[in-house]
Structures are given as structure tokens and as C-alpha cells.
Amino acid sequence: MTPPLPTDPDSAAEPGHPARLAELRAWTGQRPWLGGALTVLAGLTIVLLPAQGFSVVLLPGVAGLSGFVIGGLIAACGLFLLFSPQLHGLIGIAAVLLSLVSFVTTNLGGLVVGMLLGIVGGSLGFAWSPPDTEIR
């Protein structure tokens, strides 16, 4: 479970600072949102790249299926980073490994773009540190 979000008194007290913006800022401060967003984008890139133009759901062979499977798993990793930030280390590594696998199995990892997004997103997720950790 995600720990309850502590309020940020400094940001909330700023004059003219909208409450929703403060909420968003508090939400993003509690999770690796950038890594998660990039990882979700990576998965969507890999899934959608071979599916543009026609609504063919299944193609024969490994390459046709793996785009949906690997891309879906990478997107799921991104969602885990966003909504289960306490798993960021494990999920970040999984996202990076799946992105590397996608290079071989899925259109060179979404024509390289999706794979690079997944590697950067997964690395950011792994390197994220939760609030109130001591700086060394």
C-alpha cells in the first residue's frame, strides 16, 4: 500500500497557489512519476507501432504477438511505478530488461524509440528515492 500523502505546508501556503496544483505536486512528490510516465509511453509505443492503420488484433508468429505482450508488460510496469511506488526498484529493473528484450522480439523495440523510453523510464524508476530519505 502507498503510505498516506503528507501535506506540503510550504507549497500549500504560497499565496495564489491553486489547491489542485498543490495536490498534484504532493502526488508527484510521492512516486517516480517521470519514470512511470516514460515507461507507460514506452509500452504504448511498442504496442501501437505495428497496429497503425488497421484493426488487426492478432498476427501470426512471435513478432505479431510479442508487440502486445512485451509492450503491455512495459506499460504495466509504468503503471506499477505510478501507483505502487514502493516497488520502484524491482519494477524499474523489470522495465529495463523488458525494453532490452523488445529490441529482439518486437520491431527493434518499437523502432528503437519505445525501447529507449523504457530504458530511461525504468532507470529513473529504479533510481527514485522516496521522501524523507537521508541525503548522503
Binding site: 524499474g92 532507470s123 529513473l124 529504479f126 533510481a127 527514485w128 528515492s129 530519505t133
Partner: peptide
């Protein structure tokens, strides 16, 4: 200590 989550860059390079 940090009030918000942050990126630990040495750890980032460890994976990246």
C-alpha cells in the same frame, strides 16, 4: 532529508 521523492543519479547510472 528530502520532502519530496527525488532521483538518486549514481543509482540511475548504475542501471542506465
Amino acid at each position: 532529508t528530502h520532502q519530496r521523492g527525488h532521483i538518486h543519479w549514481p543509482r540511475f547510472s548504475l542501471v542506465f
